[in-house]
């Protein structure tokens, strides 16, 4: 089954991105498809390549990036939400791309389920 994922909070302040990540890993392990994760609201901060957590903590940004590289998950950052918060090509982590909100509607249309994580 195809799952679309929507993440509306940034890393660290809220658990949303962590929950979403664990969900996506479990879904892929069970043989489901997660074609796209859409990052909206403060969720765009998940794509900030300048994020540098301490060594004993999980690296939320890198973890998503690795998942894109290993599993081909399409990580899309909302352009309007990103511009508002200063997430642009210059500080965009590898594996993410910036695009319009239509990509969220497409994910909702093209997936059997849309699962949202936020606050």
């Amino acid at each position: 089954m195809k799952f679309g994922i929507l993440i509306n909070e940034g890393p660290f302040t809220h658990q949303a991105s962590d929950s979403a990540y664990q969900f996506v890993v479990a879904a892929l392990a069970k043989g489901h498809e997660v074609p796209r994760v859409f990052f909206y609201y403060d969720g765009v901060y998940n794509a900030n390549k300048l994020s540098a957590p301490q060594a004993d903590d999980r690296n939320v940004v890198k973890r998503w990036s690795d998942l894109a590289a290993e599993k081909g998950v399409d990580l899309v950052v909302c352009i309007a939400a990103g511009l508002r918060r200063g997430i642009v090509e210059d500080n965009l982590m590898e594996g993410f791309r910036i695009s319009g909100l239509g990509q969220l509607t497409e994910a909702a249309m093209g997936s059997e389920r849309l699962v949202m994580f936020g606050d």
Partner: peptide, 9 residues
């Protein structure tokens, strides 16, 4: 970076 194309027609 992977750009996925959905069948939404």
């Amino acid at each position: 970076m992977t750009e996925v194309v959905f069948e939404i027609e």
